[in-house]
Every structure is written in structure tokens, then in C-alpha cells.
Amino acid sequence: MYWTRKHVLICTAQHCNQKGAQAVAGRLRIELKRKGLDVDVLANTCDSIDICDIGPNIVVYPDRIIYHGVKTSDIPELVESLRPGGKPVERLLLKPYEGEEQARREIYEAAVRAEPISPEDFLALAQAHGWDESWVNEQARRGFIARKQIDDRPVIMVTSKARQRYGIVGEPSEEAAGT
């Protein structure tokens, strides 16, 4: 363990990688070294932080900051933000009750209210917020939703992972839970 002031995690999971995450990670490490910040700021790659659809993503600890949609052209601003007293890069910040995170919350809340929800209705919710079927598939792959069969009909359930992350109240209905 390195005792640094900040720890930066750059997601290099498949979807972030397809959007240039390795180049972002490499450029960030080079610039931190060039600016003499590599002793003070540890930058590592990591597997998914579960939001690759809006990546590449960077998490900054202990600041509780998530940057999304990061490009190599953003690196100079990010490096400046990592200096002592540096200000976050506002345009890249992922905020819990704005933008994509709020859209996810709204989708999951609506799905919980409608549980059990059909795959078609869940897809319609996603599309209403600007996402497509590949996004739905990614949510299933990442464990935010589960595809189940109830009385021989396919349904989608919002998992406890999504409920906890987005602070959604409500337990699965008895019918949806299979009781």
C-alpha cells in the first residue's frame, strides 16, 4: 500500500476500454509523473465500477469523485484538479442526483413500482431515458437487474444491488419473489 494523498482508479473494463480507457490511463500516469505528482497521487487501473456505458470513468479517493466520459484531451485539467487545493473538473463530474445517475434511479424506481415488469416495458423505460437494449443487457450482466420467469412469462426484477446503490425502497412483490 502506498501512502499517498489521493488514489485514482481508472476503469479499464471492456466497455470503458472500447472507449479509450487504456489511453486515458496511460496519459494520466505520464502527466502525473511529468508534473511531479506521481509520488503524491497513485493512479491504478481497475475493473468496472458498473457505469461503463458512460465511460471511460475515473474515481478519485478520498474525494468521493467520479468522472465520466473522460478523454485524453481532459487529462491536463484532471491533473490540475489533483494538485493540492485543485478544484474538480465540473463538466466531467458524475453527480448522484443529476444526469445519467438520476436517469438510472428513475428507471429502477419505476421498474420497482411496476414489479414484476415485462422485458418490453423495462426496455421502454430505458429508451425513454435515452438508453437501448444493449444498455439493458449490460445492466443484467452487471447484476442491477435479473431476468426471471414467473408463471411461464419473462419478467425483469430490480436486484438488491441496484436498490441499495440508488436508495430504492420497496421489496419485490410476493408474486415476483415466487411465493
Rank of each mutant, 00 (worst) to 15 (best):
M1S: 15
Y2R: 15
W3S: 14
T4F: 05
L9Q: 14
H15W: 12
N17R: 13
N17Q: 13
G20C: 05
G20M: 04
A21N: 01
A23Y: 00
A25F: 06
R34L: 15
G36V: 00
G36C: 01
G36T: 03
L37R: 04
D38H: 00
V39W: 07
D40P: 02
L42G: 06
A43Q: 05
C46K: 01
D47T: 13
D47H: 14
I49E: 02
I49R: 11
D50L: 10
D53V: 12
P56A: 07
P56E: 07
V60F: 06
Y61M: 07
R64D: 15
I66Y: 04
L78C: 09
L78K: 03
S81C: 09
G85T: 02
L94M: 01
K95W: 06
Y97P: 00
Y97S: 13
A103I: 04
E109G: 03
V112F: 09
A114E: 02
E115P: 00
I117E: 00
S118Y: 09
E120S: 14
D121K: 14
L125S: 04
L125G: 07
L125N: 05
A126Y: 10
Q127S: 09
D132Y: 06
V136I: 05
A140N: 10
R141E: 05
G143F: 05
A146M: 13
R147Y: 04
D151Y: 05
D152E: 14
I156T: 08
V158D: 09
S160H: 11
S160W: 11
K161F: 00
R163I: 03
Q164E: 12
R165F: 13
G167D: 08
G170P: 03
P172G: 05
A177K: 11
G178Q: 01
